[in-house]
């Protein structure tokens, strides 16, 4: 009996430790990014790092301005948002409110499968099908452009947007619908004016999490955007994102060197951006629940 008590005491300590492990890991991620990346700011002031226009990490002297990368990320993300938000919300409405039960199950499984396809596979397909298509369509020298990135990433954002928005729509209480229908509204009017309106906080969260996914996406975007670290002037130019820069260049750096630290500093920027996006999305999600 005494032995059992000791055993349970140990197990319950382990449970508590595991419980707070998530906090520890988040803290560790931040600490290690700072540890490896902070040194770049001794050489390059933060404002120059963020807003200087040139990213030439291996020229002599190197220049570490990530503005072109930030703009590349913003351009690709904005493009992906323009495509995926309306389509995603519309399909969430269709799946939640209109599709018959069987169809709904099939559609949801399909979207889950889309979410499951590894990003490197989506990047591969984007590279071999979308790239040549865009190239021919606009008569470009290369099809690997911001637009290709946006379209590819739109598909990667869609599962997140659809499934979270769908949850929010389904969570709208029945009475809202019944009341509207009883007052003579058509199903569409009810869906659009009442249900979609009531589910708005959840939809905002869905959009934000979708965008968070797009900003953080690495492999697919690296394979289809052409990777030119220049300030983009058109969506039909090659661009390079923050994530792709880290993934593509880390292998060539010297550990502890400036370039290495600069890439970790990009990691800090990414971490903070996604931290904010997820925090705000979480607040909106809690709004829906209340």
């Amino acid at each position: 009996m005494h032995l059992r008590k000791v055993k349970e005491f140990i197990i319950e300590r382990m449970i508590f430790l595991s419980g707070i492990m998530s906090i520890i890991i988040v803290a560790l991620i931040f600490i290690f990014l700072l540890k490896e990346g902070l040194s770049i700011f001794w050489r390059v002031p933060i404002s120059d790092f963020l807003f200087a226009r040139n990213w030439y990490p291996i020229s002599d002297p190197p220049q570490f301005g990530i503005l072109p990368l930030i703009l590349g990320s913003i351009l690709v993300t904005a493009g992906a948002g323009v495509i995926s938000i309306p389509i995603g919300i519309a399909s969430a409405l269709f799946i939640a409110e209109i599709a018959p039960r069987k169809t709904k199950e099939v559609l949801k499984a399909g979207i889950e499968l889309l979410a499951a396809i590894p990003s490197v596979v989506i990047g591969f397909i984007g590279m071999v099908t979308l790239g040549p298509f865009i190239k021919d369509l606009f008569h470009l020298s290369t099809g690997l452009t911001a637009l290709s990135g946006s379209i590819t990433l739109a598909f990667m954002a869609m599962p997140t947007i659809v499934s979270i928005a769908e949850d929010a729509i389904t969570a709208v209480p029945r009475q809202y619908r019944d009341a509207a229908i009883a007052m003579g509204a058509t199903k569409w009017q009810t869906t659009w004016r009442i249900v979609a309106h009531a589910a708005r906080p959840g939809m905002v969260a869905a959009v934000m999490l979708g965008i968070g996914r797009v900003i953080g996406e690495t492999m697919a975007v690296m394979m289809v955007t052409g990777n030119a670290a220049l300030i983009p002037h058109s969506i039909l130019q090659p661009v390079r994102t923050l994530t792709a820069t880290v993934a593509a260049e880390m292998g060539e750096t010297v550990q502890g060197g400036e370039h290495y630290a600069a890439l970790f500093a990009i990691g800090i920027v990414l971490f903070i951006i996604t931290f904010l996006i997820n925090g705000v999305a979480d607040i909106y999600l809690h709004k829906t629940k209340k």
Partner: peptide
């Protein structure tokens, strides 16, 4: 937040 950290940042970590 862990769920939202970009995969490449996990790589850096």
């Amino acid at each position: 937040n862990l769920a939202g950290v970009p995969s490449v940042v996990y790589g850096l970590f």
